[in-house]
Design a protein around this nucleic acid. Structure first.
Lengths: 210, 210
DNA sequence: GGATTTTTGAACTAGATGTTTCATAATGCC
DNA sequence: GGCATTATGAAACATCTAGTTCAAAAATCC
């Protein structure tokens, strides 16, 4: 049940659809949503203007498709980064390290499309999508914490949900700091130190304990 | 030594300069840098087009002035929020609470000009300014930690610098999450929980300790 | 090969945008 | 009151931008 063959009838396209979307990702990522013109997309995607409108729609539609594809890739990568054979601390460190590394990749724009640029788009559908994506990210980390509880790595009263939010919000902060030009090395150090902190079992009364 | 008098010679201005800048702040804050047109500024600042160019310069110059004035106000407010008679935990909580509250104020745009919109401006001077502002924010929190060490509230080997970065980056994360529409109540809860965590004295080997 | 279908490049239109010009208005100075 | 000075509003200007139109190109089907 995969009759993918069926060659289309007319002139074949001169571009690959998902490849063009990946190129569009870089365009939006580096210039922001408002900063991107159709000409930028035409040049960056290697797709002629009429084909662009016919196949993808207008700027907003392109951005939404870009966003969804990007979020899927990013989510998969983040999940992979959480899988560490070295245990929980290294999982969290790996997650934060991935955030930093992908936000400071050379040859690509700094920061992150989901964290840095999409939130500024004034569009209800985008906002809804981002809220889900944010919740999904936190759920990913929370799941890792729950696995650790099951494995006996951390106590069963470990506040998994709260700590997951702390991890993902901190990652957001690192990513924004990458955007303003903070060097990768600095951010990686900060990520490691934060990974240590977040595994503290319980922490209601730190001051009194001292 | 305050001879401020000296009335200017020609026709008096129909607007107050610093008031116009505050209005410009709202314009940039709500629409982002690229999203703002000169017409937006003319309408929002209550300053005619030629006066705008004569007094403030072009869009970039206006934004830089807005940014600096905004950063000063924000820095002062953040410093005030750190001053708590209730001790360190409440200081940090106050800092995070202020971040959330100012990012979810009704009648104003969500998020924060320094954290959410300025980082996307593709301009070397803006980036330099933001790096300094970020360092200044972290220094503010670190100073509060050092005061707490002096006061004996936390041990002297408390990692003040690292924790200050954790606090400010987490605040960044909260602020970005405010931008995408996360309710204030949720963010305030997250802020309180994080304030507890960050006061943990030392945390190198959490997993082993358990 | 000719009809049919689909894509493409170039040109076009209408409107938005950044910036300047200029005559006029409103003040202080004498 | 008249002159110098500064600010203002309306309009002008050139450029940029989003989106469409159309004939030519490139493929399949018969």
């Amino acid at each position: 049940m995969f009759h993918n063959a069926a060659k289309p009838r007319g002139r074949p396209r001169s571009f690959d659809e998902s490849d063009a979307l990946k190129k569009a990702t870089q365009v939006f990522w580096s210039k922001g949503y408002d900063g991107v013109t159709i000409d930028d997309l035409v040049a960056g995607m290697g797709v002629g203007r009429p084909s662009l409108y016919a196949v993808f729609g207008d700027k907003r539609a392109i951005f939404l498709r870009v966003l969804k594809a990007y979020a899927e890739r990013k989510g998969a990568s983040a999940a992979k980064a959480l899988l560490s054979p070295q245990g929980l601390r290294d999982s969290i460190a790996g997650f934060l390290r991935y955030a930093v590394e992908s936000a400071t990749e050379k040859g690509s724009a700094r920061g992150c499309l989901l964290i840095c640029v999409a939130p500024l788009v004034d569009d209800a559908e985008v906002r809804r999508f981002l809220q889900n994506a944010a919740a999904g990210g936190a759920a990913l980390v929370e799941g890792r914490f729950r696995d650790a509880i099951s494995a006996g790595e951390i106590p069963s009263d470990f506040p998994a949900a709260a700590r997951a939010i702390q991890v993902t919000d901190f990652a957001r902060g690192l990513t924004m700091r990458a955007l303003i030009g903070t060097p990768r090395k600095t951010l990686l150090k900060d990520a490691e130190e934060a990974a240590d902190l977040v595994l503290q079992p319980r922490c209601g009364n730190a001051v009194q304990d001292f």
